[in-house]
Simulated assay, not measured.
Amino acid sequence: MWWASGSLVLVTFASALQLVVAYKPLSDDTLKHRLPLPETADFDIHTGNLLAPILIPRVPGTPGSQKVLKHFVDFFRTALPTWTVSFQNSTSKTPTHGDTDVPFVNLIASRDPPWAQPGNVGRLTLVAHYDSKYTPEGFIGATDSAAPCAMIMHAIRSIDAALTKKWENMQTQDDIDLEFEEDKGIQVLLLDGEEAFKDWTATDSIYGARSLAEEWEHTMHPATSIYRSPLDSIELFVLLDLLGSPENLQIPSWQHSSHWSYVRMAEAEQRLRQLGMFKSNPKHTWLPEKNKKDTDRFSSYVMQDDHIPFIARGVQVLHLIPSRFPSVWHTINDDAEHLDIPTVEDWALLTAVFAAEYLELDDFFESLPTEHIKGRRALTSKTEL
């Protein structure tokens, strides 16, 4: 990601009108007793099932990249076997590789209602890049963006059973006509080649995102479909980047058209803090612009990141990146030891809550085992006194 230079470009899209979506906040009971919380077993920097395997150099086309990609594939195969996983491949020359084409592999995972046709499903899309920077040698990119990948993995796993239950319930209800229901699914994009190999330019950056956006723009669904293309099927593109630092790094509302989604996530953050469910610094507020007005400035194109080729094609984007980067950004110190794991786990929880609310899953979470509830009570007891 990079700050754009020069004057701010303002572009108006017909599709930039606010999307009207159903959105049901989770109850306090669900938050306290039903929604799975992040666990140390997943986020320990040395042994965590989700995070630790990503904390290695993973420059596109290298064995490290292939190893991390296999970690993602194994995760879906074992933890989320009902998801559909595919890959979008491309190659490109870079300023550092001469005439050699570098391969880029985007992982695409999705889950749609079992009765729905792909062209008729609008998808919440959670996104992070998994590649690491070419230099300095040995660069890990823990906040950039190993931790965001693990946050998304936790979020989708924690809501998957509730999603199954909701769709099973819909199929058995006599008063629900599935032909007239809005089909809503979820999609994950783990993108390759976000980092520049030399200097951030329009051609030396976001290799995977540019390739995928262009391909999806020209991949047509059947003529009778509700959505024209896979690009058109994205209801909201939620991009996580540079998250997991112990610093109090605040995230502005970057996009006017998707400010409604920023407000929803800010409200979820506020509730989780009030309930005492966050482990990180209680004095921090990540999303402070909940009350931003329509007439205020939205700097949609200032921050260069994987969302650019999507927002340029009219996709609504919720860009979760701080306006002030972590102090370790693009240095060798952006490593596992400089992550704040309570912050990482809290972002994983907030992402899960947002996804669950977006997909209206409040009524479909099962009660957690007693030992999980006891641990949660210990976490929240100070707030509840």
Rank of each mutant, 00 (worst) to 15 (best):
F364Q: 01
R297T: 15
W329T: 10
K290H: 07
R210W: 02
R34A: 14
M303S: 13
A209V: 07
Y207G: 13
S257A: 12
S145R: 06
S7T: 04
I45A: 01
R377N: 08
R58Q: 14
P113L: 06
K165N: 08
Y207M: 10
P81C: 07
I152A: 07
E137F: 07
L107R: 04
V121E: 07
P252C: 06
A268Q: 06
H307L: 04
V85F: 10
V68D: 02
D363R: 14
E247F: 02
G244M: 04
S323N: 11
Q173P: 05
L236H: 08
P369R: 07
L239V: 12
A22T: 10
R376H: 08
A79W: 00
I311V: 15
T143S: 12
L359I: 03
Q187S: 14
F364E: 01
A348W: 07
G375L: 11
D101L: 15
P326S: 06
E179H: 13
P369L: 11
R273H: 13
M151Y: 01
P252S: 05
G119Y: 08
L189K: 09
Q304L: 06
N120R: 03
P326F: 05
L80N: 06
P309I: 06
E214T: 13
P57Y: 13
F13T: 14
D346T: 07
Y207S: 10
E179Q: 14
A14T: 12
M1V: 12
T164I: 07
R111L: 11
